[in-house]
Amino acid sequence: SPEVQIAILTEQINNLNEHLRVHKKDHHSRRGLLKMVGKRRRLLAYLRNKDVARYREIVEKLG
């Protein structure tokens, strides 16, 4: 489901952010981070168009 995919991506994004705080010059990982953020944004847009209630619920849960 989109909610699960968004939750997994959010966790991976948070982990990668911590990694990049330590390894500032790791541009390869930064590119992966940007791809993940874009994918999460697309999934959220899809969910917002399909079911606003589910969209609001996941945004509330994940912050």
Rank of each mutant, 00 (worst) to 15 (best):
S1F: 15
S1Y: 15
S1M: 07
P2L: 15
P2Y: 14
P2A: 12
P2E: 12
E3T: 04
E3I: 06
V4D: 12
V4G: 07
V4H: 14
Q5M: 12
Q5A: 09
Q5F: 08
I6S: 00
I6P: 01
I6C: 02
I6H: 01
A7G: 07
A7Q: 11
A7K: 08
I8Q: 09
I8C: 11
L9S: 01
L9D: 00
E11S: 07
E11Q: 10
E11N: 06
E11C: 13
E11L: 08
E11K: 08
E11R: 08
Q12D: 03
Q12G: 05
I13Y: 01
I13S: 00
I13W: 01
I13K: 00
N14E: 05
N14I: 10
N14R: 11
N14W: 05
N15K: 14
N15L: 13
L16M: 07
L16F: 07
L16Q: 02
L16C: 07
N17C: 15
E18T: 06
E18V: 07
E18S: 08
E18C: 13
H19N: 03
H19D: 03
L20Y: 04
L20H: 03
L20Q: 02
L20R: 02
L20K: 02
L20D: 02
R21M: 06
R21S: 06
R21V: 05
R21F: 03
V22E: 10
V22K: 11
V22T: 13
V22P: 03
V22M: 11
V22Y: 10
H23Q: 04
H23W: 03
K24N: 12
K24P: 14
K25I: 07
K25Q: 11
K25H: 11
K25R: 11
D26Q: 05
D26I: 03
D26V: 03
H27K: 11
H27E: 09
H27N: 09
H27R: 08
H28V: 13
H28T: 10
H28K: 14
S29E: 04
S29A: 14
S29N: 06
S29I: 14
R30K: 08
R30V: 09
R30I: 13
R30G: 03
R31M: 11
R31E: 09
G32Q: 15
G32P: 06
G32H: 15
L33H: 03
L33M: 08
L33V: 04
L33D: 01
L34K: 12
L34H: 08
K35H: 08
K35A: 10
K35S: 09
M36Q: 03
M36Y: 05
M36I: 09
V37M: 13
V37R: 06
G38L: 14
G38P: 00
G38Q: 13
K39F: 06
R40P: 00
R41C: 15
R41W: 10
R41P: 00
R42T: 06
R42N: 05
R42W: 08
R42C: 12
L43I: 07
L43S: 00
L43F: 03
L44K: 00
L44P: 00
L44F: 02
L44H: 00
A45G: 07
A45K: 10
A45R: 10
Y46F: 09
Y46T: 10
L47H: 00
L47N: 00
R48T: 00
R48W: 09
N49Q: 13
N49H: 13
N49M: 13
N49Y: 09
K50A: 12
K50L: 15
K50H: 14
D51T: 01
D51W: 03
D51M: 03
D51G: 02
D51E: 03
V52M: 14
V52C: 14
V52N: 11
V52Q: 12
A53C: 12
A53F: 07
A53K: 13
A53M: 10
R54N: 03
R54C: 06
R54E: 03
Y55F: 08
Y55L: 02
Y55R: 02
Y55G: 02
R56H: 13
R56W: 15
R56C: 14
R56N: 14
R56A: 08
E57K: 07
E57R: 04
E57I: 05
I58W: 04
I58H: 00
I58D: 00
I58L: 10
V59I: 13
V59Q: 03
V59G: 01
V59M: 14
E60R: 12
K61C: 09
K61S: 11
K61I: 09
K61E: 06
L62C: 05
L62Y: 05
L62D: 02
G63D: 07
G63F: 15
G63P: 05
